[in-house]
Design a protein around this nucleic acid. Structure first.
Lengths: 205, 205
DNA sequence: CGGGACATGTAACACGTTACATGATTAG
DNA sequence: CTAATCATGTAACGTGTTACATGTCCCG
């Protein structure tokens, strides 16, 4: 028993040393914040869930969000004071919990909307989400976001090109493969940049 | 207490109904199988770990594998009888556990190597892993894999093109955004197909 | 004598998926 | 009478990340 106690103490101590890092929000949480903002600032879980996973608009094309995760995210948003939750009783129906975005929530959403994603692979999920909400909440911001994102992609493409150029000297078998990996990344990044240029044009002046 | 008991029973019953699905292997596990096959059929954790995460060849460029996950994966491979584990005592050093790939392991690896990935986003991780190992274990198979993968990408591109064409009729605001999502997927898929054509050429006859 | 290499792991947590629990109402 | 809809969740599992535990040996 003493040994178990000692072990627990060690674990508790090592736990205390870790300073409880502020878990940042993920795409699911931002999507919920965005949905609330777009739909008048408030909504309840079951209704929000319809926008994911079904044929109700393009959100379901970007990401799925099962009820389990959705309610989980709403709880976290409430803990972080980005939404406030009020319970509405209904006769004959389960009580409905209405979640309303707070000022802090709008601030977090706005900061997120202004930030382009760093990695090309995040364009498919994170960037599309940002674009979806920015278009509805703030069209000029959407245009700026697309321009910023394109700059990030072009910088990345330049960096990849430089890495490839630096590799060409030694043509060992292992370097040949590394080069193909970089070629793939470059091709995907260029495709993203071209696509961004297209939608920038579509977004009008 | 009786209520707790009843609750447990319900949970146990619902648990029994679920038939313990065979968890398939993930990219990390296949990467370890592949590494073992490439390096003479056997190896130990610490040594395998060097190939991920560092500057030791292109594997680390494709995926990271922290020690925690690496040992976890080796345990699962042993449970599935895809590797066998033997302990070697060493003087002054911690005991070394050598993992050797089994016939079943080679079979699983070979089946995986022959299978192109379905989704474009899996090319960056899963497909590159397959290519990396196929080239070292079976060059003609690598060439066939690239050809198959390109066919999958082209089929996907055709399907996306059809979806875009079907969308053009109604030009509502929501459909415009859906179209842009499809455009992005198509661009990424085409970029992958073109890249596959390039490496197919590089793979010689 | 401090720190890194060697070698294998566990603890705690975050993120995600699937399935199911609950319990009334309404539509077919 | 069955099934879906409404509405909110939990259980169990699986994956992944970060940090740390353990203990010896070798190098500077």
């Amino acid at each position: 028993m003493a040994e178990v106690g000692a072990e627990r103490l060690t674990l508790a101590a090592s736990r205390a040393r870790r300073p409880r890092r502020e878990a940042p929000l993920g795409p699911g949480e931002y999507a919920l914040l965005g949905l609330l903002a777009v739909r008048g600032g408030a909504g309840y879980g079951y209704d929000l869930a319809r926008h994911f996973g079904g044929r109700s608009g393009p959100l379901g094309e970007i990401m799925r969000l099962e009820p389990g995760m959705l309610y989980h995210h709403l709880k976290k948003l409430a803990r972080d004071r980005l939404v406030t939750t009020t319970v509405e009783e209904q006769s004959g129906r389960p009580a409905r919990q209405t979640h309303a975005i707070t000022e802090a929530g709008r601030g977090a959403l706005d900061r997120w909307l202004r930030e382009p994603v760093r990695a090309t692979r995040e364009i498919r999920l994170d960037f599309l989400l940002k674009l979806f909400f920015a278009r509805q909440l703030n069209p000029p911001l959407a245009r700026a976001l697309v321009a910023d994102q394109r700059r990030v992609c072009d910088d990345l493409a330049a960096s990849l090109t430089a890495q490839i150029a630096g590799l060409n000297a030694g043509a060992a078998a292992t370097e040949a493969f590394t080069r193909q990996i970089l070629d793939l990344r470059l091709a995907q990044t260029r495709a993203a940049s071209d696509w961004l240029a297209d939608i920038f044009r579509d977004l009008g002046s």
